[in-house]
Design a protein around this nucleic acid. Structure first.
Lengths: 195, 195
DNA sequence: AAAGTAACTGAACGCGCGTTCAGTTCAAGC
DNA sequence: GCTTGAACTGAACGCGCGTTCAGTTACTTT
C-alpha cells in the first residue's frame, strides 16, 4: 500500500507524547482512546505500542516528565541571597513555568487517580520534592527573622495552591499580561509570610 | 421473580445520587458506568433512567446541587459588621463547608470538562456568583480603608484557590484538626489583604 | 540486487458501554 | 379480590474499547 509523506521520519515518538498530552488534557485520560491518539498522530492504533507498553504508562510518563522538568528548571534557576528574594524568585518562576505548560499542569493535577498505585507514589514523591523547595525558603525566612508563618507546611501548601490557581483563570490576551500577574501574585505571597 | 427487601421504599432517587457522587468522585465521570452506579444502589442499570434522563444530566444535577447548596449556606451565614470580620467569616465558612463535602467539591472542580456547553455555562455562573461574594467583601474592605489589594479580582481568585487547596491535603486525624486549620488559613487570608 | 530491519497496517479478540423497552412484580385504592 | 400504576428486571441494540500480531512497506547496508 502507498505510504504517505513523512513516514519513517523517526519523530513519531515525540508526536505520540504531544498528541496524548493534548488529548488527555482536553478530554481526560479515561475519555481518550488509543485510536483517537493514533488518529491525531496519523497512524493506526497498533503503531502506538511501538512507543509505549500501554495507555497507563503513556499517562505516567507524561506526568513524570512534567514534574522532572519542573524540578530541573527550578534547580537551574539562579537563587538570590536572602529568603525574601528567594520567595520572589520562586513565585515568579512557578507562575512563569506553569503558565507556559497549561496542558501538562492540568494533567498532573487532574489525572492522579488514573495512576496505578506504584506510579502514583512516584508522582507524589516528585511533587513533594517541589513543595519542599518552597518549604525550605520559608524555613530560612523564619530563621532570618524576615518571615513569620503560623505553620510551615500549611503556608507552603497555601502559597502553592494560590500560585497554581492562576492556571485556572489566566487567558492570553486578557486584562493583565503575565508580567503583571507575576508581580501581583508575588506581592500577595510576600504579604502572607512577611512579619 | 422474588423481590428483595427494601424494594418500593421510595428512596431510590437519593440513593442513585449518593452512589453517583461517590463513584464519580472516586473514579471520574468517564470511568464510571451506569451499571456500576446501579450495582452500588442495588438495581439494574435500566432502573436508573427512572431518576435521570441520562448520565450527563446526573453529573450536572450533582454539581448544580452542590453549588446551590454552597450559595444558600453562605447566604444563611451571619454577616458581622466590618469587612475584616466578614473576611474571617467567609474563610472559616469556606473551609468548613468544603471539608464537610470533599466528594462534591472534587467533582465540581474536576468534571467541568464533561459538561455539555449549556450545563457548563450554568455551573460557571453559580461559581462566579460565589466568587462575587468574596470580591464584595474585599471591595468593602478597601473602601473602609482596612484592606489594600493590588487587584480585586486576582486577590479574590488567590484567596479562593488558597482556601480550596485545603481539600487536597487535609485528612481526618492528621496533625491539625479542622478548627486549627480554619484559624491558620484565616490568618493567612487576612495577611494577604491587610494594609 | 539481495538481505536485513525498523515502522507501520489492518484485522481480529472478547468485553463493556449508554440506552431502550416489553414484560414482571408488588403495594395501594377501590 | 380486582384493578391500577409505579418500580424494576433482563435482554438486547450497535458501537468502540485496549491490546495483539502476522503481514507489508520503505529504507539502509552490503
Amino acid at each position: 500500500m502507498a505510504r504517505k509523506q513523512g513516514s519513517h521520519s523517526g519523530i513519531t515518538g515525540p508526536k505520540v507524547r504531544a498528541a496524548a498530552l493534548r488529548l488527555f488534557a482536553r478530554d481526560g485520560y479515561a475519555a481518550v482512546s488509543m485510536r483517537a491518539i493514533a488518529a491525531e498522530v496519523g497512524v493506526q492504533a497498533g503503531a502506538l505500542y511501538l512507543y509505549t507498553p500501554d495507555k497507563q504508562t503513556l499517562l505516567f510518563e507524561l506526568m513524570k516528565g512534567h514534574l522532572e522538568e519542573l524540578l530541573a528548571a527550578w534547580a537551574a534557576e539562579p537563587k538570590p541571597e536572602g529568603a525574601a528574594a528567594r520567595l520572589e524568585a520562586f513565585a515568579r518562576f512557578h507562575i512563569r513555568f506553569h503558565l507556559a505548560r497549561p496542558e501538562a499542569v492540568f494533567l498532573a493535577y487532574m489525572e492522579l487517580r488514573n495512576l496505578a498505585p506504584a506510579n502514583f507514589a512516584a508522582i507524589e514523591a516528585l511533587r513533594r520534592a517541589y513543595e519542599d523547595e518552597l518549604a525550605a525558603i520559608l524555613r530560612d525566612g523564619v530563621a532570618e527573622g524576615v518571615f513569620s508563618v503560623p505553620d510551615l507546611r500549611l503556608a507552603t501548601m497555601a502559597i502553592i495552591a494560590m500560585l497554581t490557581g492562576v492556571n485556572t483563570w489566566y487567558r492570553e490576551g486578557g486584562r493583565l499580561d503575565r508580567a503583571a500577574v507575576e508581580a501581583i501574585y508575588c506581592d500577595m505571597a510576600r504579604r502572607m509570610v512577611a512579619c
